[in-house]
Amino acid sequence: MKKFFKTYLPFTGNEIKRNLAYKGAFYLFVFCSLFGSFISYYLWKAIYGSTDGGAIGGLTQNQMVIYVFMTYVTSSIVKVSISEEVSEDVVKGTVAMNLIKPIDYRFSLIFKGIGSSVYRFLMPGIFVWIGVELYSCLVLHEPFTGIVNLVLYLCSAMFSFFIYVLFDFCFGMIAFFTTYIFGLQMVKSAVLSFLTGELIPLSFFPAVFQKVFDFLPFSSMVYTPVMIYLGKYSGSELMFVLARQVIWIVILYALGSLIWKKVTKRLVVLGG
């Protein structure tokens, strides 16, 4: 176990360093990516303004404000894309190189992803989160989020991260079958922003759709931790959504191993 971390933690450290190296672009990027959330905040404000003022999709206007910004925080730390790197390695043929090294390719990518995630958690994640809390307390006069919800949120977000990277690894493997993964990346990001609840809370969908989403991994990526943060789950329901996340981690891990095995076999046969 100790050896495991000793092998893979440097990937995390290097990734943090690499991220820090982009300095000029950095400040503006943070500012502008938040700008998008602000616009979405106003959009929702207008939508609530067009109703009689009650809750829609099970969320009050104040909750929706928190939803918008916590979705931003969550997806920025969860959605660390590794499939681009996978497909690049495939196209360049460096995947075969990785087979020679005494490390697991997927773990090295995951630990790199952890680096990015930690980095984004520190900057800007934590600042936006503080901002959300202050805003909801001082302007919206809602109480601070309780420590229990917060801990559960962090735990769930961590699960989400693993679900996402394990899913994305499988997705990146598609590059073995088509050279043109860019078009598929477009489809992926469109599908994900829709089905993870990033664009609109999943409770806005008709009931039939929501039933279907229960059987897909996407709602576990962003929607679940944010709803936990909002205190929308309690008791057995809470245990259920967390357990579902864990199950998805197991399923996607197994699926990834299976595909990887198939692919490397092919790689050996074809000679990379």
């Binding site: 043109y180 078009g183 477009m186 489809v187 990001s189 469109a190 922003s193 829709f194």
Partner: peptide, 12 residues
């Protein structure tokens, strides 16, 4: 595939 990707994004 690229065409489909962009088409789909707009559909969402």
């Amino acid at each position: 595939m690229g065409l489909f990707g962009f088409f789909f994004t707009q559909v969402t």
